[in-house]
């Protein structure tokens, strides 16, 4: 099977171009102070990951790519619409100057759609389910960075929206993951819940949000890599993977518990300080 598929795999040059563009898009968004250029960075980011997602041309992969494209394009257009409305109302295109409440709410909702916060989260489990683990890793770590940077730059004004989004996300993330047997869907709901925590503390201590983001990235990275090495995508396969690699299976609960926020691991510290704040 692998031999038959081999000629269809992506050329390394194109793969390099796509990965570099993925980095470039996020960097443009980081570096920009004008909404148009931030939007361009987001667009480049979305465009570059599409072929990586549809790499194997499996029906599920193509479907996930289509859904991802539609949500991301809509969210990007909404971001641009919010900034245009702001420019019409206040005459400012600067990212820091988005002050009018109407475009600010619209922008927050658009960014929530982009990173998959409840109640705009429904695309995330489906898309993540259709991808292979490597692309899923990129999707749940690197792709969150650019929208999060925008969210950090415009946060202090719209507290009610942010709190509502955060609360709903933590609840939906916690409950949604309960009934799943597919590991990628569980990871998607875990992503929703963690992002909910980050959004919740965003307006009180942005530095804590960044710390949570970084530790979330670290733990998600290790989880995805463990799953990738064991080649598991369901709970069943994970529970029988001790026959294949006992040591790693013994260590996996450490990561998972850490992701879940149990003591004495890292995430507890953050949830604790979030509550203290």
């Amino acid at each position: 099977m692998l031999v038959k598929l081999q000629p269809f795999l992506m050329s390394p040059l194109i793969m390099t171009t796509l990965l570099l563009s993925l980095g470039l898009g996020t960097t443009i968004t980081f570096a920009s102070s004008h909404w148009l250029f931030a939007w361009m960075g987001l667009e480049i980011n979305t465009l570059a990951i599409l072929p990586l997602m549809a790499q194997h041309h499996h029906p599920r992969a193509v479907e996930a790519t289509t859904k991802y494209f539609l949500t991301q394009a809509t969210a990007a257009a909404m971001i641009l619409f919010a900034s245009t409305t702001n420019a019409w109302l206040t005459g400012q295109w600067n990212i820091f100057q988005l002050t009018h409440p109407l475009p600010l709410t619209l922008l927050t909702m658009a960014l929530a759609l982009k990173i998959g916060l409840a109640p705009l989260h429904t695309w995330l489990p489906e898309v993540l389910q259709g991808l292979n683990l490597t692309t899923g890793l990129i999707l749940s770590t690197w792709q969150k960075l650019a929208p999060f940077a925008l969210l950090l730059q415009t946060q202090p004004m719209n507290s009610t929206t942010l709190i509502l989004l955060g609360l709903v996300s933590t609840l939906v993330g916690g409950w949604g993951g309960l009934n799943q047997t597919q590991l990628r869907k569980v990871l998607a709901y875990s992503s929703i819940a963690h992002l909910g925590w980050m959004i919740l503390v965003l307006q009180f201590t942005p530095s804590l949000t960044l710390l949570t983001l970084i530790t979330y990235f670290l733990m998600t990275f290790s989880t995805f890599v463990v799953f990738k090495l064991n080649n598991v995508t369901t709970m069943n396969a994970l529970s029988t993977s001790w026959t294949k690699s006992p040591t790693m299976t013994a260590l996996t609960p450490l990561i998972l518990l850490s992701l879940g926020g149990l003591p004495p691991w890292q995430d507890l510290y953050q949830n604790d300080s979030s509550f203290k704040n």
Binding site: M10, I14, L18, L47, L50, P51, H57
Partner: peptide
Amino acid sequence: LTLFVVLELTR
């Protein structure tokens, strides 16, 4: 980039 993307998607 879009050229590459479309070529890869429709291949």
